[in-house]
Design a protein around this nucleic acid. Structure first.
Length: 419
RNA sequence: GUGGUUGUAGCUCAGUUGGUUAGAGCGCCUGGUUGUGGCCCAGGAGGUCGGGGGUUCGAAUCCCCUCAUCCACCCCA
């Protein structure tokens, strides 16, 4: 039936797909731990104010994409649209404020009320890392190195790493004034969206895809030149580390990113196998303002879109891990055999052997088919004859070989490695 | 939010200029083997043709609305 009773932009992750999800998740956990990161889990919902302050009131994400609601106590809550704000909320007021590093990674669902398209869902999944309190150019470069190692590890090739600097917050404010001044002169030539952005969010004009806007932006002097010497040398240092590490990257002066908390280094990984949403991962250095905290929480991190990782892997024809097969399917002929098999199934499972007992009154043929469908390695068959003699018939489903095993010796047979 | 695309069986899809009981492949069930799967053969079950309204003697087919899908814009992971 075509009626899929699902909220738009959501989908099931089926048992058949789970192995690929586990594959990229397990690899993330393994690689990130090599860099000293530990897993952390924060709530899927937070106070709305956390995102308004953290991500920025004027960002598109906050302005029009959040799933916000009031709970029964009248509290304004929001389903998290990204992972950084929650982590920083947790770290606010701790020693990370004094520059002590906390390296954590997370994975889980995020929610944004956008129109679904290729590589874009309303509930999507991110794997992210944060080096909170890690204020150094090395921390920036190292997160990119870790990202690259991870992508290599899961078999994603052909991506590009784009980097840029947004300067310090002070630089940004100065640059905004400058940008607004320059762009205002030609505001009548900008697209409607950019006219809007001019007032509240000048930076977004820079990466506008509209050809007219883009041409105007191209004529602007390099904004980076207006940054302080400190900001510029910070960026130079980051690039120096990247070069040392042997990472390939492209400096893209139009890379600005959409969240307000970024300052200094920003980066993005793009891939051609994704359709219009070509961004696999994005991140950078940030200072996240958190309600209740006097100072913003600093750090550097990135997030990857899991659905997009899987799309990229698929476009590359990457091998997917296969489903684990069932060890034993128990076939019973008659009620007495069912009872005996139920008891034996408990013994097998306690010994670590995955076992399914047919509970219905299917025919022998029907039960054999079921065993086949479940890709069982072995079928254990028991009817009146076997019960009487205290044995079970053990059939290797791949080779069709059959042998009898005395009931008491069932655990001596090695079902796992098929002996 | 805007634009386009598609919506027929569990799945992938046919269905000619509107015309009688809406089809195929795969899957599923049964039988061909008293208690033996996959391959083959025979048979069978399964459809509010996304939903609502309209035009017509008659609509899966034409018109309108609606919902959903996919894609693009936008935004971002």
């Amino acid at each position: 039936m075509a009626t899929t009773f699902l909220p738009p932009g959501t989908s099931d992750i089926t048992p058949e797909e789970i192995p690929q999800w586990r594959f990229v998740e397990n690899a993330a956990s393994r690689i990130f731990q090599l860099y000293g990161y530990l897993e952390m889990r924060t709530p899927v919902m937070e106070f709305t104010e956390l995102f308004q302050r953290g991500i920025g009131d004027e960002t598109d994400v906050v302005k029009k994409e959040m799933y916000s609601f009031e709970d029964k106590g009248g509290r304004g809550l929001t389903l998290r649209p990204e992972g950084t704000a929650g982590i920083m909320r947790s770290f606010a007021g701790t020693d990370v404020m004094n520059g002590n590093e906390r390296r954590v990674f997370y994975m889980g669902p995020m929610f944004r009320g956008e129109k679904p398209a290729a590589g874009r869902k309303r509930q999507f999944h991110q794997i992210g890392v944060e080096n909170a309190g890690g204020v150094s150019t090395l921390a920036d470069a190292e997160s990119m190195a870790m990202l690259a190692q991870y992508l290599d590890e899961i078999g994603i090739t052909g991506y590009s790493l784009l980097i840029n600097t947004r300067g310090s917050f002070e630089d940004r404010i100065a640059a905004e004034v400058l940008l607004r001044e320059k762009l205002s002169k030609r505001s009548n030539e900008l697209c409607d969206d950019c006219k809007e952005r001019l007032g509240r969010n000048v930076w977004r004009v820079i990466d506008c895809k509209n050809p007219n806007c883009s041409a105007i932006v191209d004529e602007l002097p390099d904004i980076t030149d207006s940054f302080s010497a400190e900001s510029r040398s910070y960026f130079e240092e980051v690039r120096g580390h990247l070069d040392k590490m042997g990472l390939e990257y492209t400096v893209d002066s139009k890379l600005v990113r959409g969240l307000d908390y970024y300052a200094h280094t920003v980066f993005e990984v793009t891939h051609s196998g994704l359709g219009a949403q070509n961004s696999l991962a994005g991140g950078g250095r940030y200072e996240v303002p958190v309600p209740g905290s006097k100072r913003p929480v600093p750090g550097v991190g990135f997030a990857l879109g899991v659905e997009r990782l899987l799309m990229a892997r698929e476009s590359l024809g990457a091998e997917n891990p296969h489903l684990r097969k069932l060890d034993v399917y128990m076939i019973s002929l008659g009620a007495a055999a069912v009872d005996a098999n139920v008891i034996m199934s408990m013994t097998l499972r306690k010994a670590g052997i995955s076992t399914v007992v047919c509970g219905g009154d299917k025919s022998m043929k029907g039960q054999m088919r079921a065993a086949n469908r479940l890709s069982a390695r072995f079928a254990l068959i028991r009817g009146d004859q076997e019960l009487e003699r205290g044995v079970v018939v053990c059939k290797n489903m791949e080779t069709s070989e059959q042998r009898e095993i005395p009931e008491g010796e069932i655990l001596e047979f090695d079902f796992r490695t098929r002996r």
